[in-house]
Every structure is written in C-alpha cells, then in structure tokens.
Amino acid sequence: MHNQNNITLQFAGIELGGHFKNLQYALNDKTKYNNLVGNTLNIQLASGENAIYVRAVDVNNQLSKATIKLHFFIETPFYKTRWFWTLIAITITAIVFWIYNRNRLAKQKIAFQQQLALAEQRTKITADLHDDIGASLSSLQLNSAIANQLMSKDTKKAQLILSKIENQSKNLADKIGDIIWSMKPGKDEFMTISSRIKTFANDILGSTTINYKIEVHEKLNTLIQDITLRKNLVLIAKEAINNCAKYSQARQLNLTLKLVDTKIELTITDDGIGFDTDQQLGNGLANMRKRTQELNGIFNINSSKNGTKISVVIPLVP
C-alpha cells in the first residue's frame, strides 16, 4: 500500500572469527552505501520498485563478498498517477469551457433582452408618432385648407386660423424634438435630462415673474438610459411647469429630480393660488397620471390656496 512505505529491518552479522565490525546498506543505488548504526534499519521507501542492498564490514574495513538484496514494491498513490492528473486536466478544461459558455450565453441573453427592450420602445415611439403627431399633422392640413379658403373672404378669421397653425406647428416641433432627444441618451451636456428640463423652464418661465429652481441629481443624467423613461419624465416635468405658468399665479416654482434607493422621485411645488384637484384642468393632469402609470409609478397631487405639490415616484427600471 502507498501509505505503508515505512519499514524496519533488523540484521545480525555472524562471523566466528570475531572480526565483524558493522553493516552497510544502500537503497536502489549500489554505489552509495551508508553505515548502519546498530543492527536496525528504519527507512522510508518511494513508490514503485525498491531494492535494499546490505553488506558486512570487518574490523580491517574489509567488505564481505556476499551482499544481500531485498526487493520491495510500493503502490503509487492515485493522486500521483498519470491517469489521475489527466483526469484533473480534463475536468479543469471542462469547467473552464462551461464557465466560458455560460458567460457567453449570459451576454447573448442580455444583448437579446436589450434588443427586445429597444424594439418595444421603438414600437411605443411609432405609436406616439402615429397617434399624437399624426393627429397634429392632420389638424394642420385641415386648418391650412380652411385658412386658404378664408384669405379672400374673411381676413380676420384667416389670421386667427394662421395663428392657431403657428401654435400647432410649434407644439408639433416640440413633440418631435422630445422624441428625438429621448432616443439619444449620452454624456453630451445638451442631451442630459437636466439640460432639457432647465431649457424648457427658461423658455416658459423666463418671460414671467415666476422665479424657479431646478435641481436634478447629476447621477441621473447618465443613469437613466431607457428611452420611454427619459421621454415621460421630461414630459411630466414640462406639463407641470407649463400648468404653473398658465394657471398658478405663483411667485416661486421648485423642481427636484433625485434618486432614492432604486426609485426616481420627481417633485414640483409652487406657491400659487392652487386649484380644486377634483376638477379636471385640461388634459395636463390626465397626461401626467397616464405617463406615470406607463412607468409603473405613483402619481400624487396636493393643492390648496397656499400652492400646489406634484409628486411622482417611479422605479429606476420601469
């Protein structure tokens, strides 16, 4: 057995003339003898074939003519055999190959999911283009035809319709701009959520007496990559700012967009005259609620004579 390779041998040198001195032994190599102290040999044998040679030495250091040769065979431990290490190499190779394939498949799955998510977002954008922008274009076409007919009959009515066409064109350009912007997330300063909201607030509130403060956590500018999430967040903020400018008679508007754990919190407050939240104020509130629901979020609004607070909480991954 490979774990039974320590042996003890006892020898006796017999020489009737009384000239015996000691014994010598060699392990496997007959050219390398060692003196044996006493008559007991304790030795550890290696795996495989082993040969122990023993000879006597007399008081005159003369070597005996006879040499004893003892044979021993020690089994090689399985963990030192060639087949064992071959099996280990095959096992390690198989594990490495399995890990490589698992990681490759995981990356392919993530890439596929990203492509699927992008396809879904593009489908939503296509629906927006068809429903919202398509309706706006139809209205523009109809109003243009009416204005053209009235130019020679009623100039004042024609001017009113042309003014309406101008506003519709501006709104349409804004909608197209929002969609294009939402599809280009990046680190460009002018493409961030922060810059988009601040630019709109300046355009709407810059010519009013309403002071405003916009705070967007810097991390969100690069963290939010989902097209639908980017678009709806900005549209909710724009709707709230627009309503404040039109109806609130406020002196101050504050907008905060921040990340709390794994949720995005958008809060808009003003110190205006407030309104009855049970009564619908145009389509603005309904649109904000709808966009929040599309993102699996929670929409709350509180309003009184001291002002209005809109709170939107949306998961980072809708």
Rank of each mutant, 00 (worst) to 15 (best):
H130Q: 09
L118R: 10
K65H: 15
L205C: 09
S194A: 15
A66T: 12
I314S: 01
I90T: 14
I125W: 01
A240L: 14
H19I: 10
K157A: 14
I165G: 02
T192N: 14
L205Y: 03
Y79C: 03
A12N: 15
E215D: 15
F72Y: 13
F112H: 14
L45T: 00
N283S: 10
G272T: 02
L140K: 00
T308V: 01
Q249S: 13
I193S: 09
R289C: 02
F20L: 12
A26V: 01
N148L: 11
R230Q: 09
K258I: 12
A201Q: 06
S64I: 05
L316C: 03
L137E: 01
D178M: 12
L257F: 04
D276T: 03
A66N: 11
K156G: 12
I52P: 09
V216T: 12
V96D: 04
I161Y: 02
F299V: 05
S194L: 08
Q293N: 11
I268D: 06
Q24H: 04
S163I: 00
N6Y: 04
S47I: 00
T93M: 01
F190G: 05
I74R: 01
V59Q: 14
V216Y: 09
K21D: 15
K107Q: 14
R104P: 00
K69A: 08
I165N: 14
F73A: 06
W83T: 15
G13F: 07
S194R: 14
F78E: 10
N300H: 12
R102C: 01
N3Y: 13
F78D: 08
A127M: 08
G282E: 02
N22V: 08
N6M: 04
L235T: 07
N283I: 11
N300Q: 11
I310F: 10
R251M: 04
G274K: 00
D203H: 08
I193K: 07
R122G: 08
F299C: 06
Q62Y: 10
H2Q: 06
G274E: 01
L162F: 13
R104L: 06
N254V: 06
Y33K: 07
N167S: 09
L9W: 00
L257C: 03
L9S: 06
D58I: 05
R102T: 03
I7F: 00
K238L: 07
I301H: 07
L63H: 11
D174L: 10
D132M: 06
A12Q: 14
T222Q: 12
F84Q: 04
S139R: 07
V313K: 03
K69W: 04
F112R: 13
V57K: 10
V96I: 11
A46T: 10
Q108P: 06
N221M: 13
I264T: 07
Q252L: 10
K309M: 10
L223D: 13
I268S: 11
A94V: 07
I214A: 07
N103I: 14
S144F: 02
N306K: 09
A145F: 03
